[in-house]
């Protein structure tokens, strides 16, 4: 649990004084469903990293870019990646269900 600050400790007017501070805000525990990515089946078409609203599918840049495992610290489980995958290599499963091997 983070300790909330008092009114004397926060910037005035709700100002966020530091850029990129949303990194500190881990939204990964919001999800009810999580994507399971089949690495073997993936053709690395780069559709899912571009369309991910949380920008949480990391990519190894280069001439022949490759996606990596979803960053579950930020993934909200929206399912867009599964929906847009042309080879259906991403499946959405219930968090903590049988097929969930992440824990």
């Amino acid at each position: 649990m983070t300790k909330l600050k008092t009114y004397k400790e926060i910037p005035i007017g709700g100002l966020i004084e530091k850029a990129g501070s949303s990194v500190e805000f881990k939204t990964g525990d919001w999800k009810a469903f999580k994507p399971v990515w089949d690495k073997e089946k993936c053709i690395h078409c780069m559709i899912c990293p571009v369309l991910c609203p949380e920008d949480c599918i990391p990519v190894i840049k280069g001439k022949d870019p490759k996606r990596k495992e979803t960053d579950f610290d930020y993934c909200k489980g929206c399912g867009i990646c599964a929906k847009v995958c042309p080879v259906k290599c991403i499946k959405m499963i219930e968090e903590g269900s049988e097929g969930d091997s992440s824990d």
Binding site: L4, T6, Y7, I10, G14
Partner: peptide, 11 residues
């Protein structure tokens, strides 16, 4: 609920 109140007190 976490910070709105504090910000109003400042104002």
């Amino acid at each position: 609920q976490d910070y709105y109140f504090e910000t109003q007190k400042q104002r």
